[in-house]
Amino acid sequence: MRRRVMHRFANPARFLRIAKPLTPWLLWLGIALTLGACLWGVFFTPTERLMGDTVKIIFVHVPAAWLGMGGWTGIAIASIVQLVWRHPLAGVSARAIAVPGATFAAICLITGSIWGRPTWGTWWVWDGRLTSMLVLFFLYLGYIALSNASSEKGDTSRVAAVFGIIGAVNIPIINRSVIWWESQHQKASITLGGSSIDQAYLVPLFVSVAGFSLLFGALVLMRMRTALAEMRIEARMRRMADY
């Protein structure tokens, strides 16, 4: 029964019927929310008690960090689905996540560095949080190299999937790093228990996170559609060569 449900979406044609109309919605809504949240954050939030106006960097830094980490979590889940259920779309979706995830991780690292200079007094420190986030970025690069090198099907694609699952160890390390090590980066402001960020920043921050997430979804859909179209072309070429 579950197999049936899983495989309903396994059919690329069925997936495309949903993905094609969904893509522009996610894209435009994501762009609108992201731009709106950034304008709100930059021009209509108060200056912070100690940081002054540099607090506004939070509206791009935090969503980028969450999506950089969420992206790898998605790769790991898709890789498990690929290995266990041989779901044909799972590998495609894992690959589609890699480049956006790496870019968001890079945006997080760069904006964090820019934020650190005036507030902490340094562009970079080798503390647990910053180092583990840099490791995540390198993991993305390794995953991209591996999945580019392997073909869509067969053993080599499984190597990338295994790499995606093993690399997921780093995600809880990033999350816990500020607790495990005495670090320069402050502890989590937003936890399941609540937030120590004032409402004036928290609301636009969540709008920004929502916008970034929708954009991320649109990017993954677009890249999956690209991969599926390329697979169709390849299959067609092979059939033509057979004649």
């Binding site: 939030t45 108060p46 200056t47 912070e48 008690r49 100690l50 940081m51 002054g52 607090v55 939070i58 507030t119 902490w120 402050q186 502890k187 989590a188 402001s189 120590s196 960020i197 004032d198 004036a200 920043y201």
Partner: peptide, 8 residues
């Protein structure tokens, strides 16, 4: 920095 973000 501590984990608090507070308007001036």
């Amino acid at each position: 920095h501590d984990e608090n973000y507070v308007p001036k």
